[in-house]
Each structure stands twice: as C-alpha cells, then as structure tokens.
Design a protein around this nucleic acid. Structure first.
Lengths: 70, 70
DNA sequence: AACGGATGTCAAGTATATTTTACATAACAT
DNA sequence: ATGTTATGTAAAATATACTTGACATCCGTT
C-alpha cells in the first residue's frame, strides 16, 4: 500500500525525492521505499519527513480506518 | 527525554510494561526503552502501541514544540 | 524475613532499516 | 540524437532496532 499522502505532500512542496532525502538526511532510495509502502521506517525518519513537509505524524502515517495489513 | 505521555497512557489502562509488550508483540525491554526515550523505534511498533492504548501517533509521539501553525 | 510483580539496565546475539553502487526507463528539454 | 532530471529497483554491505538471558532495586504482601 503506497503512501500517497506522503507523495502528495512532497509534490505540494515542489520537492523531488532526492531533495527531500537530502533535507531529511537519508538517501533517495529510502524516501522512495517509504512512499512505496511495504516498508517500516523508524520514528525519527517519519518525524523528520513530517517536519520538512509541514505535516504531522497523523497527517502522513496514521491510518484512521481499520486497514490492517501491517 | 522520557516519553511520559506513553507511560501515562499505559498506566491509565492499568497495564504493565510486560503486558503491553506481550500485546504489542515485543519484549518488555523494548517497551521500557521506548518509554525511557533516547530510542528510535520503528513506525509499526509505534502504531501497535497506539492501537493498544487507544491513542494516535500525534498523541504519543509527536512533539508540538516550536512549530506552531502559521 | 521471604515472596512475587514491576521496572531499570547491560552484554551479546539476531533481525531488519538504511546505505552504497549500479543499471534501468520515462519525460523534457537542447 | 544527446543530455539532464526524476524515479524504480536490486544486490551486498553497514548501522541499528529488537531479542535473549541475566542480575539489579523498589514496593506491596504474607
């Protein structure tokens, strides 16, 4: 399950995966994997991404409904 | 920096670290380290903890600090 | 006193997040 | 046709999250 909210938030900031990665301090592959889903990033990475995109953890990483698939 | 919100939410549920750990599927040491702070858990672990305690990611893991909305 | 449950911590092992390097395609210019 | 930017993906290496097992203290109970 792709993280479309993250991808959208990044695009709204006119930021490439490479640029977001640089700001966050990881590689672009890592950002790509987070957006692609099927991935379990660390909390600090999520927080850094949120801060760069002006969003909160709930905005980008909290599933409100009962979409399981952990 | 200790995660006091997590500790409080757990205690409000009358749950020991051991019991929360069992429900979440990790060891009690891991829960202890998350509560002690200075630790970087994975997103899935945070989500599982939130679900067991009836909280959201922002409730337990988002620092509102100086980033107030514009 | 002795017990049992809850928590803190530490060292060594295992699992996995993240990096590095590399090659691939598509879109859009020049 | 050539070059550049953006993205997807995949192997192997490294860093670190998480486990295992142990020993510690504190606190309430018997």
């Amino acid at each position: 399950m792709k993280n479309l909210r993250l991808k959208l938030a990044r695009m709204e900031k006119d930021m490439s995966q490479t640029e977001l990665a640089k700001r966050v301090g990881v590689t672009r592959q890592t950002i790509g994997m987070v957006e692609s889903g099927d991935y379990n990033p660390t909390l600090n990475l999520c927080i850094q991404i949120c801060k760069e995109l002006g969003k909160t953890l709930n905005d980008l990483f909290w599933e409100e409904d009962d979409n399981e698939m952990v």
